[in-house]
Amino acid sequence: MTNDKTKKIQPAKEAVTEAPYEVIYFAKKHRISNEDARDIIEKHGANRKEADKAGRRISV
C-alpha cells in the first residue's frame, strides 16, 4: 500500500466538529437544563468553541 498524499480524506473528527451539538449531550456535558442548552446551540450554531464557553458560563 502506498502513501498517496494526493488523495485527501476528511477525518471523522473534522466532520463532527463542524456540526452543532445535540441538545441532550450538551446539557449533560455542562450540567445545565435542556432549555438552556437549546438556547446556546441556537445562538452559536456549529461554533462549538463558543458554545462550550457559553455552557461553562451558565454551569458555574
Rank of each mutant, 00 (worst) to 15 (best):
K8L: 12
Q10P: 00
H30R: 06
N47Q: 05
Y25Q: 04
I24K: 13
A46E: 14
N3M: 09
R31F: 10
K53S: 04
E18V: 06
Y21M: 07
F26E: 01
V16K: 09
D39N: 15
R38Y: 14
R48V: 00
D39P: 06
D36K: 02
K13W: 02
V23I: 12
I24M: 12
I24Y: 10
A27H: 01
I9K: 11
I40E: 01
A37W: 02
G55A: 01
M1V: 03
K13A: 12
N3G: 04
E42F: 08
R56G: 08
T17C: 10
E18I: 02
N3T: 12
P20D: 05
V16P: 00
R48H: 06
K28L: 05
P20A: 00
Q10L: 15
I41C: 02
P11E: 13
Y25L: 03
I9R: 07
K53M: 05
T6S: 00
K8I: 10
G55R: 00
K53Q: 03
V16L: 12
K49Y: 12
K5S: 04
T17L: 13
S33T: 06
I9E: 11
E42K: 15
A37E: 00
A37M: 10
R48M: 05
P11A: 12
R57G: 08
I58P: 04
E42G: 13
K7P: 10
K7E: 13
T17A: 09
A51M: 01
E42L: 14
K43A: 05
V60D: 08
H30D: 01
A46P: 11
D52P: 04
E14M: 12
P20K: 11
I58L: 04
R48K: 06
Q10N: 14
N47A: 09
I32N: 02
P20H: 11
K8M: 06
K49L: 14
G55D: 01
R31P: 09
S59P: 14
T6E: 04
A12S: 11
E42N: 15
T17N: 15
A12P: 03
T2L: 03
E35R: 09
